[in-house]
Amino acid sequence: MGEYKVREQTDVEPGQMVMPFYLICDVSYSMYDDMRALNDGVERLRKAIVGEPIVDEVAQICVMTFSDTAKVVLPMGQMSHQSSVPALSVEGGTNYGAAFRGLASAITSDSASLKAQKYKVYRPCAFFLTDGEPNDHDWHKSYTDALTYDKESGAGLKAHPIFVPFGFRDASEQILAQLAYPKGRGKYYHVKDKSVEEALKGILDIIMNTVVTAGHTAGSNQPAVVQTAPAPGSGITQGDSAYDPDYIS
């Protein structure tokens, strides 16, 4: 058995449960000085999950990047079945709309694939890691169109994720609050004076806590993702969703 890659049976039994998580990383120019820390942090996150057999068994992770376009760099899968995460490299601008559309496409495709394999799929959780503000002025419309759902009208993405923005450095808290979804339950996180690694540690905590409470939750059919408050002194602030479909960016 390799240190951070585990061999186990990979066959899928109908009825296996899976919690999909998406990590969408900003690789725009402004991230140039952060790329080493970002790559190290993502790899540490992978190793930490592999080191927790319960979490590794239930969580499946997809790593995406975005700049002018979005792409999947590590397809949805169990972390112990991967030997490493491909190196992320800096690219172009900060186009949020491209990220949102790319994520919606990945979720639609992955959900269909997992369901076809007869997995019992929990609602996905998407972590959006960014250090700046969007270049695209219509980012909010792109977000609403691609990743939200109106129960009454049936418009939007029924398979929408729980969207957890993690901004750091120059990311705008006002924009992060608009992106946290669904309203009433979604939260955003902001890491003002710390590194991208601190943000990734916060993401890992949420993944661990969410899987640990994978059993029953009381109440209505609400998302079960556990967005715990950051530890005192962590340098991370947390805020509630202010998502407004009529917000004008």
Binding site: R123, H216, A218, G219
Partner: peptide
Amino acid sequence: YYHSSAVRP
């Protein structure tokens, strides 16, 4: 659409 472990206990 998705699996949920929520119950009314």
